[in-house]
Design a protein around this nucleic acid. Structure first.
Length: 645
RNA sequence: GCUGCCUUAGCUCAAUCGGCAGAGCAAUCGCUUCGUAAGUGAUAGGUUUCGGGUUCGACUCCCGAAGGCAGCUCCA
């Protein structure tokens, strides 16, 4: 088996796809609980990770604040929670921190830890808390929140505390912080060699870009030096399979400054990946009853006004071009045009469900800082389709799409993902979301019950829906740990009405269909970015840009090598001949570097016997075998899209 | 977009205090014709990302822009 994208271990004891999200990050389950809530998960936060680590990380955040305040007395600590692998603390401070600051903070923290200071908890009245933190407007704001029953310095606003509950403060050495705890009893519980400050960055107060920007310092912390080293090692290893690096090494894609940021150029090897994925999608979608359509990359403004996209998405659309007084937009999604295709004909209930598929190319003007290799780009080709169905067909259609997800994940061996039911939030109605709460609740329940009935595990996260309806997103992680939505399955109760889409039902009356937006194979960009990392560049045979490299040992073997490659190509394999003047060893090394599945070495013996000596990229040497025998082995593996070699 | 950092040959990186811009790999041309992860010689490759400034002199210092990286925000 080829390596999978698993170097960022999931919390232990957690069933796959069964863990909890907090602020979009998966977090550990309560100690001793192996399966966790699927819906509306809210939990006592001190149990998000083993409690001793939670205390250590949380306490280190306070100790870091002490070190920061010693060096910068004007800094104002704001919020500093433990997080996966460590902790951070956000400070309001005049000057951003420098790498030298970090070194100094870390050195000072080690001293403090070795000082064996006690962490003392004290409960204070609201008035006293206001006195203690009078010089820190951020803490005062937190106290305001506590007094009114909102969150605390963990930044977890959803987890409301009863109003009027006692306010607690924690002190160690010279530092006192507003804090719920818990903490270590003494700094001697902290291993001074098992933590490290890793980075600084800007971060908005309370995660809102309209607020002031604070300076965040991240640290990682573990129980032992060894665990810390292992973590740092894992991070280094992960960088090696970063799709941005492998994409260049394997000649899959490039970015060019003169073309523009976020606009990838697919090299021939990338072109092959795209072709293979589209071939897969077309086969699967043909079987699943989809019709393929094609639509323009450009449409008049009116269409996006009608769809309702412009008010919500204008910021991430390329600005319009105006011709003869008419504004045209480059499309950021295909749906409005698919709706128009549905509307082009009158439909009977007998036509439904109607499934319109298109690998459409869309353009979205993502903010510059949001671009990320292939995972977040400005031009993308989506595995898009829209399913128009009657309400009583919804469950089957929606779960049919989920079935496609699962089929693809099995094919690719994707095991680390989470399905997320993204729902609306009441406060976003009319702003982020279509203002029809009844329909939200109804469609959310439709999805929830369909998923539950079919026993597909999911987590539920409010305020993540599309503007037109709830959705099931499939969350995956890039090799460096960033979370992305890979695939999506969205309910749309808004656009069919806006487009006056109707069908004639059994009673002979007009009825508005539901629409399901879905993209199980994501976009080519994100899917391939993910697959590069998932396979660490060692693609299964069917995806490998070069499937077999024929390696003649000496010049006199080149003619036969070309013959072999020709025979393989006749079987539909992508085979090349390395006829460079290098030695065989060097040719093998290069082919290994390109992660080519099969290396076929050819010398006198093979030429004379009509054979090939097969070396797999795993290093395994299958020795010489008749060419036809190799074909009998490899071609079925290729055609069946098997993971084997 | 915001905060910080970075940008030297196709790639990975050097260049002392401001004093002649270098190496490995890759590429090209030879020699070598080899049995499972680097044979060998030579050649070429640079307006040090771009635009200003300071200086006798700038890869090096200052200002601005572009692109990238980390995080925030946002997202397929």
């Amino acid at each position: 088996m080829e390596p999978r994208s698993d170097e960022r271990p999931l919390p232990q004891d957690v069933g796959r796809a069964f863990y909890i999200f907090r602020r979009g990050q998966p977090v550990c389950p309560p100690a001793g609980r192996s399966v966790v809530i699927v819906q509306g998960a809210r939990m006592a936060k001190q149990h998000d990770m083993p409690e001793d680590l939670f205390r250590v990380r949380h306490s280190l955040a306070h100790i870091m604040a002490e070190a920061v305040l010693e060096r910068y007395p004007d800094a104002r600590p704001t919020i500093g929670p433990p997080v996966e692998n460590g902790f951070y603390y956000d400070f309001a401070v005049g000057q951003p921190f420098t790498p030298e600051d970090l070194d100094a903070f870390e050195a000072r923290m080690k001293q403090i830890v070795k000082g064996n200071y006690e962490f003392k908890r004290r409960e204070v009245s609201e008035a006293e808390a206001r006195r203690i933190f009078a010089a820190n407007p951020y803490k005062i704001e937190l106290i305001d929140g506590l007094a009114s029953g909102a969150g605390d310095d963990m930044g977890d606003e959803e987890e409301a505390q009863p109003a009027g509950q006692a306010i607690s403060i924690y002190s160690q050495d010279t530092f006192t912080d507003l804090c719920r705890g818990p903490h270590v009893a003494s700094t001697k519980e902290i291993n001074p060699d098992a933590f490290k400050l890793t980075s600084t960055s800007g971060a908005y107060w309370r995660g809102d870009e309209h607020n002031a920007m604070l300076q965040r310092i991240y640290g990682v912390a573990f129980r032992t030096r060894r665990e810390l080293d292992e973590y740092l090692q894992r991070v280094e290893e992960a960088k090696k399979r970063d799709h941005r690096k492998l994409g260049r090494d394997l000649d899959i894609f490039v970015f060019d400054d003169e073309v523009g940021p976020g606009l990838p150029l697919w090299l021939p090897n990338g072109g092959i990946l795209i072709e293979e994925l589209e071939r897969l999608a077309k086969e699967v979608e043909l079987r699943a009853g989809y019709d393929r359509v094609r639509t323009p990359n450009l449409t008049k403004e009116d269409l996006f006004l009608k769809s309702g996209h412009l008010p919500y998405y204008a910021e991430s659309m390329y600005p319009p071009m105006e011709l003869e007084g008419v504004k045209y937009y480059v499309k950021p999604m295909n749906c409005p045009m698919h709706h128009k295709i549905f509307a082009a004909k009158q439909h009977s209930y007998r036509d439904l469900p109607m499934r319109l598929a298109e690998y459409g190319t869309c353009y979205r003007y993502e903010k510059s800082g949001e671009l990320f290799g292939l995972m977040r780009v400005r031009s993308m080709q989506m595995n898009d389709a829209h399913i128009y169905c009657a309400e009583d067909q919804f469950e089957q259609e929606f779960m049919g799409v989920i079935g496609l997800y699962l089929e693809y994940f099995k094919l690719f061996g994707i095991e680390k993902y989470v399905m997320r039911l993204s729902t609306h939030s009441p406060k976003g109605l009319g702003r982020k979301y279509i203002d029809n709460e009844a329909l939200w609740l109804k469609t959310e329940e439709m999805v929830r019950s369909a998923m539950t009935k079919h026993q597909v595990p999911f987590v539920e996260v409010p305020d993540e829906a599309a503007f037109y309806g709830p959705k099931i997103d499939v969350q995956i992680w890039s090799v460096i740990g960033r979370e992305f939505t890979l695939a999506t399955n969205q309910v749309d109760f808004a656009q069919p009405g806006r487009f006056n889409l109707t069908f004639i039902n059994r009673e002979g009356k007009e009825e508005t269909p539901l629409c399901i937006h879905r993209a199980p194979l994501s976009t080519h960009e994100r899917m391939i970015g993910f697959l590069i990392e998932h396979y660490a560049g060692a693609f299964p045979v069917w995806l490998a840009p070069v499937q077999a490299m024929v390696i003649p040992i000496a010049d006199r073997h080149v003619a036969y090598a070309n013959q072999v490659a020709g025979r393989l190509r006749a079987e539909g394999m992508r085979a090349s001949v390395d006829d460079s003047t290098e030695r065989m060893q060097n040719k093998i090394r290069k082919a290994q570097g390109q992660k080519i599945p099969y290396m076929l070495v050819i010398g006198d013996k093979e030429r004379d016997a009509g054979a090939v000596a097969v070396r797999l990229r795993t290093g395994e040497d299958l020795k010489a075998m008749p060419l036809e025998q190799f074909i009998a082995r490899a071609v079925p593996i290729m055609k069946s899209r098997a993971p084997d070699l």
